[in-house]
Computed example of a mutant assay.
Amino acid sequence: MEMTDGLTGDAPVPSNPIMMRANKVCVFYGEKQALFEVDLDVAANEVTALIGPSGCGKSTFLRCLNRMNDTIDGCRITGEITLQGADIYDPKVDVVELRASVGMVFQKPNPFPKSIFENIAYGPRIHGLAKSKTDMEEIVVTSLQKAGLYEEVKDRLNEPGTGLSGGQQQRLCIARAIAVSPEVILMDEPCSALDPIATARVEELIDELRENYTIVIVTHSMQQAARVSQRTAFFHLGKLVEEGATDTIFTSPKDKRTQDYITGRFG
C-alpha cells in the first residue's frame, strides 16, 4: 500500500499507510444535508477519534465507513470512500463482506440472544471461515482472548451472552467483530453506557487492538479521545473543522471553534 498525502489543511501526513480515505463526502437525509464535503484519511494501526458536539455529524460519518447509512430510508451519500484504495460504494461491492472488513461496535452492547460461544461463532459461520469444529473453537477462543474476555467466561461459553455485565457484553461485541478478521473496527461511543472501571478496561483493550487493527472511535469524552487516539478529527455542524495528531489538536488547535470546544466554551 503506498503512502499518499492530500490531507485537509496543513495537517501532517500520518506516518502509517492510509487504510481508509474519505474524499468530499456529503450526506443527505431527504432534503436535509447532514455532512458537508468531509475529507479525512484514516491511517492503519492507529486510533482516530471523531469528536464534536451532539448532532455535529460524527456518527453519521462513522456509519458511512461501512455503509450502515444504506439502511436508512432517504439517506443519500456523495463523494468517495475507499478501503485500501478500493471504492466501498462501488455497485459491485458486497455489503456483507464490507461489514466483515469494517466491523462495528455500537453505543449500547448488543449481544445476540444466543450463547457466548454462538455470539462469536455466528459471523465466521456465515462467512465460511471455519473448516471444522476445531477451527471454530479456535476462532472463538482467540477472539475472546483478543477482547480480554476469555479468562472471565471460559467456563460458561454455553451460557447466554446477555447474562454478562455491561462491560463484559461490550467486550463480547468487540470479540464478535474481531472473529471475522476485520481490517477496521468502528466504535460508536462504545463506553457511554459503561461504568468507569468497565470503561478503563475497554480503553486498555482499544490500545492493545491497535497493533492489529485500524480503529475509528466516536466519543463524547474528550478525555477518552486524548487517552486512546493518535489522531483526532473535530466535527462541527456537519463539517470537519480540523484534524491532526491528537496531542496537537488538544494543545494547539488551529481553528478557534476547536479551541472553544476543547476548553468547554460550547458543546
Score class of each variant (00 low, 15 high):
residue 6 G to C: 12
residue 6 G to M: 10
residue 6 G to E: 12
residue 7 L to I: 10
residue 10 D to F: 08
residue 11 A to P: 02
residue 16 N to S: 14
residue 23 N to S: 14
residue 24 K to G: 15
residue 24 K to I: 05
residue 28 F to Q: 14
residue 29 Y to M: 11
residue 36 F to E: 03
residue 37 E to C: 07
residue 40 L to E: 03
residue 41 D to G: 09
residue 42 V to D: 00
residue 46 E to C: 12
residue 46 E to H: 12
residue 54 S to G: 03
residue 56 C to F: 06
residue 59 S to L: 03
residue 60 T to M: 00
residue 60 T to A: 01
residue 61 F to T: 04
residue 64 C to I: 09
residue 64 C to G: 05
residue 66 N to M: 04
residue 69 N to F: 05
residue 72 I to H: 07
residue 78 T to P: 03
residue 80 E to Q: 14
residue 83 L to H: 00
residue 84 Q to C: 13
residue 84 Q to H: 12
residue 88 I to C: 08
residue 88 I to S: 08
residue 90 D to E: 13
residue 90 D to H: 14
residue 95 V to A: 10
residue 106 F to T: 04
residue 109 P to T: 04
residue 109 P to D: 08
residue 109 P to L: 02
residue 111 P to D: 09
residue 116 I to V: 15
residue 122 Y to H: 11
residue 125 R to Y: 05
residue 126 I to M: 14
residue 126 I to Y: 08
residue 127 H to C: 06
residue 131 K to S: 13
residue 133 K to D: 13
residue 134 T to A: 15
residue 135 D to F: 05
residue 138 E to D: 15
residue 139 I to W: 02
residue 140 V to I: 13
residue 146 K to V: 00
residue 147 A to H: 06
residue 149 L to F: 05
residue 151 E to Q: 11
residue 152 E to A: 12
residue 153 V to P: 00
residue 153 V to K: 06
residue 157 L to M: 11
residue 158 N to F: 11
residue 159 E to G: 02
residue 160 P to R: 05
residue 160 P to I: 05
residue 163 G to H: 11
residue 164 L to Y: 07
residue 169 Q to L: 06
residue 172 L to S: 07
residue 181 S to A: 10
residue 181 S to K: 12
residue 182 P to D: 01
residue 191 C to P: 04
residue 193 A to Q: 12
residue 194 L to K: 08
residue 195 D to Q: 08
residue 195 D to F: 03
residue 195 D to P: 05
residue 198 A to W: 08
residue 207 D to S: 15
residue 208 E to R: 15
residue 209 L to F: 03
residue 210 R to L: 00
residue 214 T to H: 10
residue 215 I to Q: 05
residue 217 I to A: 00
residue 217 I to L: 07
residue 222 M to D: 03
residue 225 A to Q: 11
residue 225 A to C: 10
residue 225 A to F: 11
residue 227 R to C: 02
residue 227 R to G: 01
residue 231 R to D: 03
residue 232 T to M: 01
residue 235 F to K: 04
residue 235 F to E: 00
residue 237 L to R: 13
residue 237 L to W: 07
residue 241 V to L: 02
residue 245 A to I: 13
residue 247 D to T: 14
residue 248 T to Y: 03
residue 248 T to N: 11
residue 249 I to C: 05
residue 250 F to D: 04
residue 254 K to S: 13
residue 255 D to K: 12
residue 255 D to G: 04
residue 259 Q to N: 12
residue 260 D to H: 12
residue 267 G to T: 08
